[in-house]
């Protein structure tokens, strides 16, 4: 396991400058690690990620895979204002606006893609959104896929209300 070691920077003595004995000591350290890990592989702390996950703790929970919230009538809450795409430092949000003909809302996102393979999970898009339409609270950690397409979220994959979400009930949503 990793621990902090205080290094004592004194001048080297003769035995250390000859180096052979020191190499041998180092050799024993690496060999010990090798045999311990060889015979009890359970001690390796690696997590075989996509197959095995562990519950997220603390702040790590706050920014996970994106979702787009929906109004009570099922239309996306997003008004295609492009603020999130502008704020995004990784340029990974792609929006194409569509127009409502009979609604108080002018626009809706006809296309809304988030390329998770570029996203840095910074949460700027959530901060920027004036409509509180995009959120990063699905608790799904992106990554660990075999195909590029699986990292590319389209509108239909994004549109998702969480159980008990206020937008379902219609509260906190001025247009619903």
């Amino acid at each position: 396991m990793i621990e902090i070691k205080k290094v004592n920077n004194r001048p080297l003595n003769l035995l250390e400058r000859i180096y052979v004995w020191e190499i041998f000591k180092g050799f024993l350290v690496t060999a010990r690690h090798f045999f311990v890990n060889l015979f009890c592989p359970g001690k390796i702390i690696t997590i075989q990620y996509p197959e095995i996950t562990r519950p997220l703790e603390h702040a790590a929970k706050r920014r996970t895979r994106h979702r787009l919230k929906m109004r009570a009538n099922g239309t996306p809450k997003c008004v295609a204002c492009f603020l999130c795409a502008t704020a995004c430092p990784a340029f990974c949000i792609h929006i194409e606006a569509g127009e409502f003909t009979s609604s108080q809302v002018e626009k809706y996102p006809a296309v809304f893609d988030v390329d998770l393979s570029r996203c840095v999970m910074c949460g700027m898009c959530v901060e920027a959104c004036p409509e509180d339409a995009i959120a990063m609270d699905t608790e799904v950690i992106p990554g660990g896929v075999l195909k590029r397409e699986d990292m590319y979220l389209t509108r239909n994959k994004l549109l998702q209300n969480m159980p008990g979400d206020p937008s379902i009930k219609g509260a906190a949503n001025r247009l619903a």
């Binding site: 690496t30 060999a31 090798f34 890990n37 060889l38 390796i44 702390i45 075989q48």
Partner: peptide
């Protein structure tokens, strides 16, 4: 494999 085991990797 050897290098990974020495470095506590898989």
């Amino acid at each position: 494999k050897l290098s990974s085991l020495m470095q506590d990797r898989v």
